[in-house]
């Protein structure tokens, strides 16, 4: 346990302000699209990460995409069951999302290019509060 975590466990305050602040990010998948260069930044930004432009429009990420790269982690931090499959997903229509694969019996089913979709799952428990967010599920090919 890190000193930070120990301090937090001793504190009765859960991290609820942060959960509340992240609501549009986590649940509505709100990012930004640059009106000048088209770069999609997630979470929302006031300044384009790519070109520095101030002209940003809200952009809701789609929930489907394809695996760009992945790994199979046998040494995840406490609270996660090994192995986890960590992925970076190319979202349909642009933008990327980093996350975990869920509901896969055999990690070797995951490949570069595998079609995935986001599903809402419990990610962790923070100071007694369950924290939900998106994981990726493999899309059955017809």
């Amino acid at each position: 346990m890190t000193m930070w975590e120990r301090e937090r466990m001793q504190s009765p305050r859960p991290a609820s302000p942060l959960f509340w602040r992240l609501n549009p990010t986590v649940y509505h998948l709100l990012g930004s699209k640059c009106s000048d260069c088209g770069h999609i930044t997630y979470p929302q930004t006031k300044i384009c990460h790519k070109c520095g432009s101030f002209n940003q429009k809200d952009h809701q990420l789609p929930k489907t995409g394809k695996v760009h790269t992945f790994c199979i982690n046998w040494t995840p931090p406490p609270g996660l069951e090994p192995p986890t499959v960590n992925v970076i997903v190319d979202l349909d229509g642009g933008g990327r999302y980093v996350g975990l694969i869920t509901e896969v019996a055999n990690p070797e089913e995951v490949k570069i290019g595998t079609k995935v979709e986001m599903v809402l799952r419990r990610l962790l428990n923070d100071s007694g509060l369950d924290f939900y967010g998106y994981k990726f599920r493999l899309v059955e090919e017809a």
Binding site: L22, P77, P78, G79, Y97, L100, L123, F131
Partner: peptide
């Protein structure tokens, strides 16, 4: 870990 992620901006950072 749980701490590192929740401190970060991206909701997936906590995922190990």
């Amino acid at each position: 870990g749980a701490g590192g992620g929740i401190l970060g901006l991206h909701p997936s950072w906590m995922m190990g």
